[in-house]
Amino acid sequence: MTNWLPKDFWTRNETLVAGVIVLFCVIATISDPRFFTITTVSDLLRAAIVIGILAVGAMLVLVSGGIDVSFTAIAVFAMYSSTVLFLAIWPDAPWPLIFAVSVGFGALLGAFNGFFIAFLGLPTLIVTLGTLSIFRGFLLTFIGSQRISDLPPSMRDFSRGVLARGTTEAGNFYSIPWAALALLGVIVLTWVMLKKTMLGRSIYAIGGSVESARRIGINVKWTQFFVYVYVGALAGLAGIIHGSVGRMADPFSLVGLELSVIAAVVLGGARLIGGYGTLTGTMLGVALIVIVQNSLIVVGIPTTWQSVTIGILILLGTGVPAYRAKRAAARAG
């Protein structure tokens, strides 16, 4: 075996998911040569931005040994209420300020989750199921339930900003929006945190064993609290990007997406028991989910089969490694 590959390369989820993606692309390109073009890639990338940012947050929670289902509610809450706020007091505010406020709202709601989970020690699924309903209900009842298409102009400006655009020889238009940079920034920031700081390593350690983490002196409570605040902030960012790019603040959007996002993260190798998860895996999982959601039709599978396909992928993607591990354990025992 080659030395530059990690030892467990062939048994990793990442490899499996990447393989499925490549396979899908090959089949898709064979059945429709127009599939593998820059237009498709830029379409998929655009679709992956919001899910990608949310997935980074979801992965972080899984790594820390918890699960969060409220992040979509946080995203839409932060997006809608910051939009309403700025429309009321300062419609001409620059977009970075609006974004910052949305991120702040997100962090605040994340802190709400974090308080119950880290300081009161309540189960994460129960807390976030509860807050999912609360955030959503609060938003629709007290802040508004109208779709707003008349956004602050600076948000529209943001959505028009592109990193690259052009027309292919075949005459298809493509563009990569600024928002792609946000996803990149989130990935880099999170990567540095997870790999290069003691905070990040502590998150992995807590996911591995809370009791051991406590015994060697990791501040478990604050670390958990931080995780939920960070996830909330990422949700706030994802939400406002979703609103800007879609040019509409829709209080009914995003909620319902949380299971797809968690599916992407789990496909990428994060384990529900905590302690495991990589950014590479998460991004591959997101890519696979986005491809399935947008391009299934190209290989001749009807769109209605989307969720069945995703379900099968999850069963295979997590089942195969789990089954392998079980066999290995049985042999050793």
Binding site: K196, M198, R201, G217, G275
Partner: peptide, 26 residues
């Protein structure tokens, strides 16, 4: 043993040391 099953041998051995010297970066 209070070890972290998901972390490497090196990290398990050195984690407590890194914490006690108040390292911020890994």
């Amino acid at each position: 043993f209070s070890l972290f099953p998901n972390l490497s041998v090196a990290e398990n051995i050195a984690f407590a040391t890194q914490l006690s010297t108040h390292q911020r970066f890994f």
